[in-house]
């Protein structure tokens, strides 16, 4: 059936187009209205790399902070992560440090509160009311993080940074260079995509898979350890055993 199965998660602020990216990749459709994701959604697709069939099992998480306690359970055990921001909304780019600090700290596997300057970055300055709300959420956010530090043990996760909504050039608030620079500084792959026009959507998912595949070939993973979010497929003949004998159009009894 497949040679490998890779687990992906898609993370990023609400409304940046995570679900749209998934839908474009699995169904080749675009959904113009914002259907807020509740908890998580799931999608799957087969791709092929190096002539090997690879199944992508993709978990699209809710960007809303209130769901974070649920979505945290999915960070672990994924081989790839799509970290998405919206090029037309600066604050979604500013938030990247919040998202990434989780992964960074997880890589050091140390327990410490987030550095205060990061915390500042996460709070929109524009309005007092909003600051209050964000601060509330943010506090919970960090507190949870401390608890979960151990949960993010997979240091081999491949992360791609995605600047989405590239079709809205006239509303751009984050330049391509800024995105690329940020990615380089943090060792991420980078692409600008449009879930609407499908530009670069395939590439985003496939490039990530290529990177993971390279890591496998280099022997970076212990394939048997499923916490890396990678599974070796069964040999194709073994899969058929489970299936029932072919349909009986007659002589059923």
């Amino acid at each position: 059936m497949y040679a490998f199965l890779f687990k992906y998660i898609i993370i990023g602020d609400t409304g940046v187009g995570k679900s749209c990216l998934l839908l474009q990749f699995t169904d080749k459709r675009f959904q113009p209205v914002h259907d807020l994701t509740i908890g998580v959604e799931f999608g799957a697709r087969m791709i092929s790399i190096d002539n090997k069939p690879i199944k992508l099992q993709i978990w699209d998480t809710a960007g809303q902070e209130s769901f974070r306690s649920i979505t945290r359970s999915y960070y672990r055990g994924s081989a790839g992560a799509l970290l998405v921001y919206d090029i037309t909304r600066r604050e979604t780019f500013n938030h990247l440090t919040c998202w990434l600090s989780k992964y960074k700290r997880k890589q050091n596997n140390t327990l410490q509160l987030a550095p205060p300057q990061n915390h500042d970055n996460c709070v929109p300055h524009s309005n007092l009311h909003l600051t209050w709300i964000s601060a509330q959420c943010q506090m919970r956010f960090w507190a949870d993080d401390v608890d979960d530090a151990r949960a993010f043990a997979n240091s081999n996760m491949t992360i791609i940074l995605i600047g989405n909504k590239s079709d809205l050039e006239q509303k751009r608030a984050v330049s391509y260079e800024e995105g690329a620079k940020f990615a380089e500084e943090n060792g991420l792959i980078f692409l600008e995509t449009s879930a609407k026009t499908a530009a670069n959507v395939e590439e985003a998912f496939i490039n990530t898979a290529k990177k993971i595949y390279e890591k496998i070939q280099k022997g970076d993973f212990d394939i048997k350890d499923e916490t890396f979010g990678i599974k070796l497929g069964q040999p194709s003949n073994k899969v058929e055993i489970g299936a029932a004998p072919p349909a009986q159009k007659s002589g059923c009894c």
Binding site: T14, G15, L36, Q64, E65, S66, F67, S126, N127, L130, I133, C137
Partner: peptide
Amino acid sequence: LAKVESELAELKIKYS
């Protein structure tokens, strides 16, 4: 709470 919060966030976006 989660619902209210999400509504708030939506409003936030609208507001800005």
